[in-house]
């Protein structure tokens, strides 16, 4: 399974860092990409990750009300919903894209989110795109 985590540098990315420092274990199948803020997320980024082979995409933003740029995480959630809609339109499971909100000092939440996503994606199986390419 290939997972991509698009993380805000203020919370999600800092939480992954802390998870590493604390020696927490999570799936090694996740590729972490740092965004300046999830407000930078574009629907295209999600679709591109899927096209390039991700079985699941996790967007990790700050807790609602805690965005360093005020509304970035709220905008990101709307874009994640838009991406889900497009996934559905082209015949891919929208559940392959999810967003979670957490704080930088909550590495366990990041670990949990990755594990939850992994279990969900494993249950769905590889992305239909990856099945076609095999």
């Amino acid at each position: 399974m290939k997972l991509v985590a698009l993380t805000c540098s203020f919370c999600g990315y800092a939480a992954t860092d802390l998870a590493g420092l604390q020696g927490m274990k999570y799936s090694s199948d996740v590729t972490i990409i740092r965004l300046p803020c999830t407000g930078r997320l574009d629907v295209k980024h999600v679709l591109q990750a899927v096209r390039m082979g991700a079985d699941g995409v996790l967007v990790v933003g700050c807790l609602e009300g805690n965005c360093n740029y005020q509304y970035g995480n709220l905008e990101a959630r709307k874009r994640v919903e838009q991406a889900k809609g497009i996934m559905k339109e082209i015949g891919l499971e929208p559940e392959r894209v999810e967003m979670v909100n957490l704080a930088s000092n909550q590495p366990w939440r990041f670990v949990q989110a990755v594990e939850d996503m992994y279990v969900k994606v494993e249950r769905m199986g590889p992305s239909p795109l990856n099945k076609v390419r095999r």
């Binding site: 679709l47 096209r51 082209i90 015949g91 891919l92 795109l129 076609v132």
Partner: peptide, 10 residues
Amino acid sequence: SEALRIESDL
């Protein structure tokens, strides 16, 4: 464009 590329690959 990205959606159409996925559609094409699928």
